[in-house]
């Protein structure tokens, strides 16, 4: 019982830490929407109005508490600009992201494990060396470079021009 209590206290502290850091980084010091929501020639008063509407004039504790309440009640409020509830936006977009991510993730892991087993099985043989060579090479390529290369290959006249 005591063990269970200690474990859950531990988990609670961890969650508190994660929310505190994510709040400080992404909300408190995060993007300030004010200046994308004001129009041309705004007056100081209008800027204050927008800041007030966004809740930026609230003290740290209040905003953090609001953030925690929103998180735990899963009521994420409404988008500042479109007024659409954030929950609905997430429901609309998350399935798409998952559908794009999961096949890559699963396949990548399967392939990685298979190659790893193969290499371990044939320790020291040429296939081990090829696989480990390739993987060291793969690790040395920046993600960014792959993306740029694919962009060129797939969609410009300098590559395959698959989508002319």
């Amino acid at each position: 019982m005591a063990y269970l209590l200690r474990k859950s206290l531990h988990g609670l502290l961890l969650i508190l830490g994660v929310t505190l850091i994510s709040f400080v980084l992404m909300v408190w010091f995060g993007p300030d929407q004010t200046y994308s929501l004001i129009g041309k020639n705004a007056t100081a008063e209008q800027i204050e109005d927008v800041r007030h509407a966004l809740g930026y004039d609230q003290p740290f504790i209040t905003r953090y508490a609001d953030y925690l309440i929103e998180l735990f009640t899963l009521n994420l409020g409404a988008s500042n600009s479109s007024g659409e509830p954030v929950n609905r936006i997430l429901a609309r977009t998350i399935p798409v992201s998952l559908a794009l991510m999961i096949p890559g993730f699963v396949l990548g892991n399967l392939l990685g494990i298979a190659l790893g087993l193969l290499a371990a099985h044939r320790r020291g043989q040429w296939s081990d060396r090829v696989i480990s060579g390739l993987s060291v090479g793969g690790m040395s390529i920046s993600f960014l470079i792959i993306i740029i290369v694919f962009q060129v290959l797939l969609s410009t006249p300098y590559g395959l021009n698959l989508f002319p």
Binding site: G108, N109, L111
Partner: peptide
């Protein structure tokens, strides 16, 4: 490391 190599390949396919 092997897992990473695999991710490269599949990412390419997914794209």
């Amino acid at each position: 490391r092997y897992r990473l190599a695999g991710i490269w390949l599949t990412l390419a396919a997914a794209l």
